[in-house]
Design a protein around this nucleic acid. Structure first.
Lengths: 221, 221, 221, 221
DNA sequence: TATGAATGAGGCTTCATTCAT
DNA sequence: AATGAATGAAGCCTCATTCAT
């Protein structure tokens, strides 16, 4: 979020005289492409459409990103980078384990909710069997810390005697992710089938509170 | 699953001399199209490819389904029909509430796991903002019973004093779905980022058991 | 007009029990096809559409008319037959020449105006360089009398000394036709370019009166 | 006629090495498409056929004109532009009213006769109920002057006392157009039904002279 | 006489990509 | 570093017509 937005606004500062600013051009293309891919999927997105919404031309997309797949790969990378950067703002070390876990779950729920385009890109990537993610070593490096935070909390909770033993931080991450992800990814079908009551302001507050509750009941000693 | 597979095999029985069997032709097209849409998405799937894998011609696809969107809509409908039919085989009424809920969660987890194409179609449909599902009144009718089962279990559990009060069957369905769905939908990205340990036989057994555990701890009085 | 309408209503009388009535089926198809060809042109009309608006099936069209071109040819024939039959109702022999000519022009103007589908079919036929008309010997036979009437009037007028000599009845027919035909055939473009004032009730009355006037001024001694 | 032909011949000058000349490419496509649409109608014309007769490829048709309808619309526009441009070469202001009107009628008769493709396009457009003409504001602007010329002649004739009062220039335009248009539009059917005597050189000379005569007799005081 | 199912050929259009400047 | 013009391959869909019963 941070990085790219900054670059884009950097381009804005350049204004009409914006020329010879490769990084701004790249960032502009990436931002537009991210929105288009998130909205329409990989095969659904159109290079022409992306180019039209850009401040530059279609040729530049090929100049900077090679081809459509290359652009998608960089978009995916950038999306993970932005979202993981957002997570790093969370400072949990000074909280006691129960509070830290509660806050982590609540934050994850909200963070996913605030980044629907990222969620959609991950859905799209799963539709494609994760093959583009596989190619990008950059993305894997970004995610190792996600588990580390959770592991640290869990171990502190164990040491304090407040969490029960034998749990797997990776599985905990899976569970928290499942609940937070599904809330965004499946909203369209779920609400069309069963009504959108769960996505009212009250509904989401309740859902988040119960996610935290669910994880805590599962973890507490 | 049952209905269409039967029709398709009915076509098989006719063998090479199969002609003038509209239902078999429709079912054949639907089965092939379901696999192709699940694999490649709506815009990614190719009518030519679907036709080639069919016992009939491309022209017949248009004869029976109008256009690509119409075919996709019927595929989605059929996918829901098959999956919901499978769920109806579950007989939970004779079980006491805790056992019934355990079994429902475990079954849901397994059922999603056994039907990855259905999961992928739902993901694809969410990418399309649920617009095709919206058009199909048939699908909505299929899903009303899903909540009813869960509600019945919960109310019996309340009456028995084993479940705590104040919970929402719809939200319970959401939670069970979230865990079971994510297990299939996000396997590609999750396992590529954090390893595929959770999808070993042991991993899945543990995951399922913990899903049941998680829901029970959340519901029990 | 008469013939076919009669047959069609004959079919109506048969009602639900209508079966084994070849002439009614043919007439039904012809009537529907005439409307469709007049509306959409030869290549624009759709066999499927015609069949759908018919009381019978697509197969019958091929059974009775061979192919699309054959159907069109018979439609054209039928259209001429109906229109020429309408003209024969005019009895001009008992009128003195000036009155007869006035009445003939006025009738032609009105008759074209009442039969826009016929006009459109003739336009379509001209687009096709008259090749289908060329094939139909039936149509040519229908039109020989048209000139004969006019010739008779002109000769009586000459004998009475009220018409000037040296005029050509064929050319007179051409002039009367041009004014009456254009009034229907080019209404769409003319009124879009210059307004539709001439096609108001008053406008048409004035136009018709002036057509009569124009022809008379040209013919009178 | 002038404008487009010039551009097309401009392309010819470039010869085989002709590349990167957008206007020539557009003009080439337009000229070919005009002939094809005039010959076969809107639904009868084939994009493949048009492309084949062009110096460029089918893809370029879509690049410049969007789709078949868009191409047809621009062809119609160009046809009106060329024909109206031809009319503007007529200088009638220095002639006395009777001579001016005679010359206008004669010119219109000849001009229509020289531009059969334009006539056919107008016929086709009328078959389509003028809907494409309706969309093109450019065409309407071209036609406003057509009436103005005639009105000016009529008013001068009135002032000179040579024309009778109470006539409508718009209706005069309608009458002149009807006779001149029908001569081209209905030649195929008329000559097949009644012989082609009127379209011999002598026949056309007579017809034109009588059209002028007819209009004059109608207008003269 | 009548019908629903089936079809091959060909139509229009879109797409990612590259070329020439 | 940048652009408008150009393109081949492939996509979706429609049409008149015929088949099997």
């Amino acid at each position: 979020m941070g990085e790219m937005a900054d670059l884009a606004s950097g381009a804005d500062e350049a204004g009409g005289a914006r020329k010879r600013n490769p990084e701004a051009v790249r960032a502009d293309i990436l931002a537009v492409a991210m929105a288009e891919f998130a909205l329409n999927g990989l095969s659904g997105a159109r290079i022409d459409e992306i180019a039209a919404k850009t401040r530059t031309s279609k040729r530049m997309i090929y100049y900077y990103f090679g081809d459509k797949d290359g652009l998608y790969e960089r978009v995916l990378e950038e999306a993970y980078r932005e979202v993981r950067a957002g997570e790093n703002e969370l400072a949990l070390d000074h909280l006691e384990p129960v509070a830290a876990l509660s806050r982590l779950v609540g934050f994850t729920f909200d963070h996913h909710s605030r980044n629907p385009d990222f969620i959609r890109l991950v859905m799209i990537e799963n539709i494609h069997h994760g093959e583009y993610l596989e190619r990008s070593s950059a993305i894997r490096d970004l995610n190792v810390t996600a588990i580390a935070n959770l592991k640290s909390i869990y171990e502190r909770g164990l040491a304090h005697g407040v969490f029960r033993a034998g749990l797997d931080p990776l599985e905990l991450h899976w569970q928290i992710s499942a609940l937070s992800f599904f809330n965004v990814s499946n909203r369209a079908t779920f609400s069309r089938l069963f009504g959108d009551r769960l996505w009212s302001d009250d509904g989401q507050r309740k859902l988040k509170a119960d996610c935290i509750d669910m994880v805590l009941r599962f973890v507490l000693a």
